[in-house]
Protein backbone atom coordinates (compact mmCIF):
# COMPACT_ATOMS: atom_id res chain seq x y z
CA UNK A 1 0.00 0.00 0.00
CA UNK A 2 2.87 2.36 0.80
CA UNK A 3 3.91 2.21 -2.85
CA UNK A 4 0.45 3.22 -3.98
CA UNK A 5 0.34 6.07 -1.46
CA UNK A 6 3.77 7.25 -2.65
CA UNK A 7 2.62 7.32 -6.27
CA UNK A 8 -0.48 9.32 -5.41
CA UNK A 9 1.47 11.72 -3.19
CA UNK A 10 3.90 12.38 -6.04
CA UNK A 11 1.01 12.92 -8.45
CA UNK A 12 -0.60 15.49 -6.13
CA UNK A 13 2.71 17.28 -5.49
CA UNK A 14 3.43 17.41 -9.23
CA UNK A 15 -0.02 18.83 -9.99
CA UNK A 16 -0.06 21.35 -7.16
CA UNK A 17 3.47 22.66 -7.61
CA UNK A 18 3.54 22.31 -11.42
CA UNK A 19 6.45 19.88 -11.50
CA UNK A 20 7.32 16.71 -13.42
CA UNK A 21 6.85 13.52 -11.37
CA UNK A 22 10.46 12.59 -12.14
CA UNK A 23 11.71 15.64 -10.22
CA UNK A 24 10.08 14.44 -7.01
CA UNK A 25 11.83 11.99 -4.71
CA UNK A 26 11.35 10.71 -1.15
CA UNK A 27 14.07 12.97 0.19
CA UNK A 28 12.84 16.06 -1.70
CA UNK A 29 12.09 18.92 0.69
CA UNK A 30 8.87 20.74 -0.17
CA UNK A 31 10.21 24.24 0.39
CA UNK A 32 13.93 24.02 -0.40
CA UNK A 33 13.89 21.46 -3.23
CA UNK A 34 10.41 21.73 -4.73
CA UNK A 35 9.91 25.46 -4.32
CA UNK A 36 6.67 25.23 -2.36
CA UNK A 37 6.04 28.63 -0.84
CA UNK A 38 4.18 28.71 2.44
CA UNK A 39 0.98 29.65 0.60
CA UNK A 40 1.24 26.59 -1.60
CA UNK A 41 1.96 24.36 1.40
CA UNK A 42 -1.48 25.10 2.79
CA UNK A 43 -3.16 24.21 -0.49
CA UNK A 44 -0.95 21.15 -0.84
CA UNK A 45 -2.39 19.88 2.45
CA UNK A 46 -5.92 20.42 1.12
CA UNK A 47 -4.94 18.62 -2.10
CA UNK A 48 -3.72 15.61 -0.11
CA UNK A 49 -6.94 15.64 1.89
CA UNK A 50 -8.94 15.66 -1.34
CA UNK A 51 -6.89 12.86 -2.94
CA UNK A 52 -7.03 10.55 0.10
CA UNK A 53 -10.36 11.72 1.55
CA UNK A 54 -8.85 12.40 4.95
CA UNK A 55 -8.66 15.34 7.36
CA UNK A 56 -5.25 16.42 8.60
CA UNK A 57 -4.28 18.75 11.43
CA UNK A 58 -2.80 21.77 9.66
CA UNK A 59 -0.10 22.53 12.22
CA UNK A 60 1.06 18.89 12.31
CA UNK A 61 0.93 18.62 8.54
CA UNK A 62 3.02 21.76 8.04
CA UNK A 63 5.76 20.19 10.17
CA UNK A 64 6.19 17.49 7.50
CA UNK A 65 9.12 18.70 5.41
CA UNK A 66 9.86 15.96 2.86
CA UNK A 67 7.90 13.89 0.34
CA UNK A 68 8.91 10.62 2.07
CA UNK A 69 7.67 11.92 5.43
CA UNK A 70 4.43 13.04 3.79
CA UNK A 71 3.90 9.50 2.49
CA UNK A 72 4.36 8.14 6.04
CA UNK A 73 2.15 10.87 7.54
CA UNK A 74 -0.67 10.20 5.09
CA UNK A 75 -0.33 6.40 5.35
CA UNK A 76 -0.77 6.76 9.13
CA UNK A 77 -4.05 8.61 8.50
CA UNK A 78 -5.27 5.80 6.23
CA UNK A 79 -4.71 3.06 8.83
Amino acid sequence: MAGDVRERVIKVVAETLNLEAGQIHDESKFVEDLGAESMQSVELIAAFEEEFDIEMDEEEALDVKTVGKAVDFIAAHLD
Binding site: E15, T16, N18, V42, E43, A46, A47, E49, E50, E58
Partner: peptide, 14 residues
Amino acid sequence: RDLNPNVARRMVKR
Protein backbone atom coordinates in the same frame (compact mmCIF):
# COMPACT_ATOMS: atom_id res chain seq x y z
CA ARG B 1 -6.15 30.37 -10.72
CA ASP B 2 -5.19 26.89 -11.83
CA LEU B 3 -6.64 25.09 -8.83
CA ASN B 4 -8.81 22.00 -8.52
CA PRO B 5 -12.26 23.28 -7.38
CA ASN B 6 -12.61 20.40 -4.92
CA VAL B 7 -9.37 21.46 -3.28
CA ALA B 8 -10.59 25.06 -3.24
CA ARG B 9 -13.80 23.94 -1.57
CA ARG B 10 -11.79 22.22 1.15
CA MET B 11 -9.80 25.41 1.64
CA VAL B 12 -12.90 27.59 1.86
CA LYS B 13 -14.52 25.27 4.42
CA ARG B 14 -11.71 26.15 6.81
